[in-house]
Each structure stands twice: as structure tokens, then as C-alpha cells.
């Protein structure tokens, strides 16, 4: 079979545009240019061990975790309602959840600036009701709101697709055996939906922890995430060494969280969306 050679163009492409760039980033993260050429150094990684940068990392993780948790709390009931038998028009509902993603995500995030501004839409509405104004634009809360808003569908859809595949008779069997609603949910439905929950958590946490756009638009300049730090190293301070080291740290963070999540994933079938 010569058809194997059909992969050749992509293999070359892959080496040039996927493998080499990865090695370049790794190289810059441990190399330093001196008078006589390049030499190995751990300085870029050592520079990271500074309270300022460690705090940026912690803030990124905490904000992403909080957003993931809120997405789960908001998204699970939504997915369950949509998947439940009595709910008709499932297809339209599914489409309505996907539809916002067709609008440019920068624009949707920008729209929140309009909504949240001091004399924006929400505050005009609140003052109409004589309620105190809400002033959260350019704070952590606004960043979390932006993350939840942008990534909520990623939580709803995988949970919905797992829940709607659960065999009704399994639930009926549990009820027949005397389980009340809470027990049935805790012992049967929730464990069965775990693969969807796991892929939902992964799909929300990953983009949330690496974003630099949401924090740039909705967070103030002082609320920097690790994504912003990387962007800054490459586009304004031109410190490729430190930027590459940060990228390596971010890749490790992603690998670690995938490792943790795959431990909870049963038979690897959780990736309903992949």
C-alpha cells in the first residue's frame, strides 16, 4: 500500500509548524544570549518565583476555578431541565444555546462593558427601580462574569448530551426499588452524568485559565492573568526568554489539569464534544 505516503505533506507541515515552534519555545525558555552566543540558563524560570508573578498565577487559577464552579452550578440544572422527558422543543433549545457562539466573542464581551458601565444599561435600570448602583466593571467580579458568560454553553452541552442518553428504565428501576428523588439523583443520575460533567469542567477551565482577552476588556489593568503576562512579554517588553518560560508553565498547568480530570473520566468516553 502506497497510500501511506499521502500523509507525507502533512508530516512535513507538522514538523515545521508544530514541532519546531514547540522546540523554539522550549529553547528560549532555558537559553540566554551572551557575547559569544547562547548558553543554558535557569534565570527565566527563577524570575517567575517572585511573589508578583506567583500571585498572577494563583489569581488566574482561582478566577478560572470560581468561574468553572459557577458554570457547573448554573449549567447542570439547565442541562437537566432540557434533557428531561417533559421538555419538548429540545432541538430549538439546543440551537438557542449554540447560537450566541456564532456572534464574535470579543463583541459579546464588549457588550458586557456597555451593560456594566457606571451609567450603563444595568445601572440605568437599577436607578429606575431606585436600587443602589452596581459598580463592578474593571474588577475581578466582572472578569468572572465574562468567563461564565462566554463558557457556560461548554458546560451545558456536554452534560445535556450525556443526560439525554441515560436509559429511562434505569431511573425507573431505581424508583421501583424505593429510591426517592434525591437518592435516585445522587446514586444513579449524577454518577452516570459524570463523564459529561468532567468534559464540561475541562472545557470551561482550560480556556478560562489561559484567557487574556476577557481580563483585558473587563478587568482593570491591575488585574492581570497569566495570559496577559505572556502577551506582554512578547508584544511589549520583548522578553522572549521570560515569555517562553511562562508559556512552558502554562502548558504544564494544562497538562496537569488534564491529568487530574482524566483520572475522573470513566472509560475515556467522556469527551462528548470531541
Amino acid at each position: 500500500m502506497k497510500q501511506r505516503w499521502l500523509a507525507a505533506p502533512y508530516l512535513i507541515w507538522m514538523i515545521i509548524f508544530i514541532v519546531v515552534p514547540m522546540f523554539l519555545v522550549l529553547f528560549y525558555s532555558v537559553a540566554e544570549q551572551t557575547g559569544e552566543g547562547w548558553r543554558l540558563t535557569g534565570d527565566h524560570f527563577r524570575r517567575f518565583v517572585d511573589p508578583i508573578y506567583i500571585n498572577v498565577l494563583i489569581r488566574s487559577i482561582v478566577l478560572a476555578l470560581v468561574s468553572t464552579l459557577i458554570c457547573l452550578l448554573l449549567g447542570y440544572p439547565m442541562a437537566a431541565i432540557l434533557a428531561s422527558r417533559e421538555y419538548s422543543r429540545k432541538k430549538i433549545m439546543y440551537m438557542l444555546i449554540v447560537l450566541p457562539m456564532w456572534m464574535n466573542f470579543l463583541l459579546r464581551t464588549y457588550a458586557w462593558m456597555t451593560l456594566l458601565e457606571r451609567n450603563g444599561v444595568i445601572n440605568s435600570f437599577l436607578s429606575l427601580l431606585r436600587l443602589p448602583a452596581l459598580d463592578i466593571l474593571y474588577t475581578n467580579q466582572a472578569v468572572i462574569l465574562g468567563m461564565v458568560y462566554n463558557f457556560l454553553p461548554f458546560m451545558i452541552l456536554p452534560i445535556y448530551s450525556v443526560l439525554s442518553k441515560i436509559d429511562e428504565s434505569v431511573i425507573e428501576a431505581a424508583q421501583d426499588l424505593g429510591g426517592n428523588n434525591v437518592t435516585v439523583f445522587r446514586r444513579v443520575v449524577f454518577p452516570l452524568s459524570l463523564p459529561g460533567v468532567v468534559s464540561g469542567i475541562t472545557m470551561v477551565f482550560m480556556p478560562a485559565v489561559t484567557t487574556f482577552v476577557i481580563s483585558r476588556l473587563l478587568g482593570g489593568g491591575q488585574f492581570m492573568l497569566i495570559g496577559n503576562l505572556i502577551e506582554q512579554q512578547f508584544l511589549s517588553s520583548w522578553d522572549w526568554g521570560f515569555g517562553s518560560a511562562l508559556s512552558v508553565i502554562m502548558m504544564l498547568l494544562i497538562l496537569a489539569s488534564m491529568g487530574i480530570m482524566s483520572k475522573y473520566e470513566q472509560d475515556g468516553g467522556g469527551g462528548a464534544l470531541w
Binding site: 500523509a7 508530516l11 507538522m14 515545521i16 509548524f17 508544530i18 514541532v19 519546531v20 515552534p21 514547540m22 523554539l24 519555545v25 528560549y28 482550560m206 480556556p207 489561559t210 487574556f212 495570559g227 505572556i230 502577551e231 512578547f234 522572549w240 515569555g243 517562553s244 508559556s247 502554562m250 502548558m251 494544562i254 488534564m258
Partner: peptide, 24 residues
Amino acid sequence: LVLNLNYIPILNPDIVTGISLMVL
């Protein structure tokens, strides 16, 4: 091996894909 390499751009954060290509 090829399939694993193929996953790199999908799993990598976009910002890392972006800067690594820019560096290249």
C-alpha cells in the same frame, strides 16, 4: 506518534500556539 502530535494544536492554549508560531 502522528496522532499525538496532531493533538498538540488542539490541546495547547491558543495563546501558546500563537506565540510559538510568531517565534517561528
